[in-house]
Every structure is written in C-alpha cells, then in structure tokens.
Design a binder for these strands. Structure first.
Length: 441
RNA sequence: CGGGGCGUAGCGCAGUCUGGUAGCGCACCUGCCUUGGGCGCAGGGGGUCGCGAGUUCGAAUCCCGCCGCCCCGACCA
C-alpha cells in the first residue's frame, strides 16, 4: 500500500479526551474515530489490526475443535424471559421495540440464543460434546464507557459455548478452552495470565479471567512471580489428551494469581514467598466460565442418554474481547514515540521509507523494493509522500510497524538500505538486492 | 448514578469575568526551496462560536432550557 493513496488521518497533537496510551495512540495513528461515547468507527489501519486479531482467535478456536457460527445482534426478549435474565440483566442491556411493538434486545452475550439453537438441533448423547462460537458485535450500555476501545459500549467479542453430557466431560471442554486461550494470546505476542475470578451475572462455578499486565488496567492483580518463569510463548498440546490438557491447566493455575475481587491476602502470604509476591494492574482480555446447567435447565436443553433417560446438558461460555485486545496490546507494547506492534497482529509487516521522494534514484530504488516485497507477499506500507524525512520517521514510529526499510541518497551511494527494528531500535545496513530476501518467509 | 470539567476551523487552544461583527499554533491549498528525525520563504482557503428560546441597537460573551463529550468515584467482555 502506498501511503500517498491510503486513508490514515494522523494527528500531530494528542486529542484531549484520550487519557491512556492506547486510546491516544489509536486516535493519533488514525486507527479509529469516535462516533459517540463508547462507540468507534474502525479506519483502514485499525481495521487491519482488528481483523488480524480476529483471525488468530478464529484459527485457535477451530484448532481446539470449536465450530464457528454467526448469530444476529438483535435477539427476542422472550428468549431472555425464559432464562430469567430479561429482568435480571439490568440497564446494561439495550432494550428496543420494533414496529410491531415487539420487545427486542441488542445482544450483550448469547447464552440464551445458543442454548436454544443447540437444543433444537440435538436429541442424543451421541451429539455431544460440541462447542459453538461466533465473533460478533455486542452492545452493553455501560454506565461509563472509557479508555477508547478498551471499554466501549459496542465491541467485538468472540464467545464460545460448550455442551457436554456430564460435569466431568464439561470440565474437559473448559480445560480445552483454557489451553486454547494460552495459545491464542501467545500468538499475539502478549502474556495474558489466567486468574481466578468472580463469575459475575453470568453465573457458574469455575471461572478464570485472562489478564494482560499493564499499568492502566482496570483490575488490580496479585500473583506469584514464579509465573514469569513459565513458558508463555510455545504452548503445544493434543486437545484429545484429557489428562495432558488437565495437567497443563493445573500447571498454569497452581501458582497464586487473583484479581482484587478474589484476592485473599492471607492465602497470598501463605503460598507465595515474600520476595515473589507481585501486584499490579491488568486488562481483562478473556474470561471463561463453567456454569453447568444454569441455562440448560430452565431452557430444557437435554438429550437422551444411553439408558434412554433424558440428561440435561452441562455448559460453559468462553469470551475473548477482540476489539479490546487492540487497545490491550498497545498498552502492553508501546514507547514514547508510538505503537510497537507484535509482528503477528501488525497492520503491515514492513514500513518502507523513501527519504527523498522526487529524487529519481531514490524513487527508483524504493519502487523496486516496494514491488519486490509485494510480489513476495510481504505486507508493506510505502511512505511515498512528498514529506521531509523527519516527518516520515515520526509517522512510521507512531504507527509502529515492526520493520522499517529506509532508502535515502546516503545509503544509495553505497548500494545499501537501512533496516530498522521498531521494537529494539537496532539498525542494520543491507545491500539493496538483499532487502526483499530478508522478509520472505 | 453522585461529584468535577469542557463544547470556538481537521487537531490543540486564546477570546467569555468587563457584550461591539472571531484569533493563534499545527494541519490543509498554490508557488518556490528542501528531504538522514515533525524543513524554510511567500501567498491563500476554511467558522450557523454544541442546539433552542430570551435580554439588548448589538450576544461566542449575559439569562433560561436542552444536548453532547471527558475526568474521578460506585459498577463491568
């Protein structure tokens, strides 16, 4: 993509409404535009990141055996009356009437609908276990939206729902999602620590939140420093191996880690040696629940067992805040100059800077590298604007692409380009004809 | 939902107290010059001063009502 033909309205000044880094940087880099309190339009640069994150989530859900569906944003109020949550959910749920004066709601979550769908499609114990998920926009009419996309009212969420014949089988479904979350976040280049959590209005028994550690997080967290010793980047497992999956969950939950809601100071001090007691703040990017028959029972979600008797299914739900992750990743990965995208979610892999646009030699060299990179399938953003070099450096650092390729008269004299790593700042001179090879996988 | 604050050009702000026909920086357009960390010179465009009603000869400014947004707290993917 040529920057001269892109839509990326960069702001030089900080918008006054943005207090925290991710919000400020997303607005400055032209990734999003606020439409109303807690409601954002995603501009090309931001949308690319959102889609990359969504795709990683999708691939890891599929790998864990979940099946993708898509449910509507608007739901019938009757469905929610059946579960009792129409009255219980409170004002966060947006209630709407259609032209026939029928009560609708804009879905804040989908337990009722998925349970209804699943119930109508299964009759036998042979039809379970199953896990259905979708990635869909949600609306929760938050009392106080803030921090940009981190607490919007309208947000993109992946929510999965498991159905099992027994509590024991349900536990395995829960554990599979637990492990798949470790893999999902690891692929995005962030560490999201699972912590015991309150179950909230969704209800249930077992529940873990996954939190990205960041000073601007909304939750207080307390954890064992030994958690840092675990390997968070390579999670490898056979999902069908019940014991291995359970062991891995045990491994990542055996050390103390809790949000302030579940924190027990006495237990913390008993289990964690003094030098290892860490506390801080975290951003909740995932939340998993096992809630048994909480919805299956009132909604009659049951199958016939081997003995011919009806069995009420056991369920869990598993959420990942896809749009929140965009902000969460920035909170965990930025510096004074701008965003530092982990490669897996970066909007482009390479930013190509032509320091002297208009100079025949520089233009020719940059054009060639641009076309070669594209031919090799490397996502490249080419700053071909007629701007001074300093402005291009500043813009490229702001938007945070992992690699910068810098073409200028100085290097061209020696037949080289400069490659800069955005994260480390390391620079390297590379012969012009070797640049493309450096980025081909 | 309680407390505080803000709404003037795309962004950041001044002007409001003390009413007199709207200004600054950046951005943008044209030309020249430049391009190794937000370059220089010259010229230029852009505003129903959040909305409505009032007071006044005259309202961004004073009065009344409304709307929107932000921050702190209580609540949450």
């Amino acid at each position: 993509m040529r920057l001269s033909q892109y839509f990326m309205p960069i702001l030089r000044d900080d918008p006054k409404e943005a207090e925290i880094a991710s919000h400020r940087l997303m607005l400055r880099a032209g990734m999003v535009r606020q439409e109303a309190a807690g409601s954002y339009s995603w501009l090309p640069m931001g949308f690319r990141v959102l889609k990359k994150i969504e795709q990683i989530v999708r691939e890891e859900q599929d790998r864990a055996g979940a099946l993708e569906v898509l449910m509507p944003t608007l739901q019938s109020a009757d469905l929610w009356r059946k579960s009792g949550r129409y009255d219980a959910y409170g004002k966060e749920m947006l209630r709407i009437k259609d032209r026939q004066d029928r009560d609708l709601i804009y879905g804040p979550t989908n337990e009722e609908m998925i349970t209804d769908i699943f119930r109508s499609g299964v009759q036998s114990y042979k039809d379970v276990p199953r896990n259905l998920y979708h990635i869909q926009w949600k609306f929760r009419d938050e009392v106080r939206p803030r921090f940009g996309v981190m607490r919007g009212r309208e947000f993109l969420m992946k929510d999965a729902y498991s159905f099992d014949i027994s509590v024991e089988a349900g536990k395995h479904s829960y554990n599979k999602m637990f492990v798949s979350y470790l893999k999902t976040f690891a692929r995005m280049g962030i560490k999201a620590v699972p912590m015991r959590a309150d179950t909230g209005p969704i209800g249930g028994d077992a529940s873990h939140e996954f939190l990205v550690l960041a000073d601007t997080g909304e939750s207080g967290v307390f954890f064992d420093g030994a958690l840092h010793d675990l390997d968070w980047s390579t999670i490898d497992i056979d999902y069908d191996n019940v014991e291995a999956v359970a062991n891995m969950v045990a491994d990542y939950t055996s050390r103390y880690a809790a949000t302030d809601e579940k924190h027990d100071q006495a237990e913390f001090e008993k289990r964690v040696p003094e030098g290892k007691r860490l506390s801080g703040r975290g951003i909740e990017v995932g939340h998993i629940f096992f809630f048994g028959d909480k919805y299956s029972l009132p909604m009659g979600c049951e199958v016939q067992g081997p003995d011919g008797k009806k069995v009420t299914l056991q369920s869990g739900s598993y959420g990942i805040g896809v749009s929140r992750l965009v902000g969460g990743i920035i909170e965990a990965s930025h510096d004074k100059d701008g965003i530092i995208w982990p490669e897996a979610v970066a909007p482009f892999k390479v930013g190509l800077i032509n320091i002297k646009s208009g100079d025949a030699e520089a233009d020719a060299a940059a054009e060639k590298i641009y076309k070669d990179l594209q031919a090799k399938g490397v996502d490249v953003l080419y700053d071909d604007r007629n701007q001074p070099g300093g402005a291009k450096f500043a813009a490229m650092d702001l938007i945070g692409l992992p690699w910068q390729v810098i073409i200028g008269p100085r290097g061209l004299k020696e037949g080289i380009a400069e490659i800069k790593n955005r994260k480390t700042g390391a620079r390297e001179n590379v012969a012009l004809d070797q640049v493309t090879a450096r980025f081909s996988n």
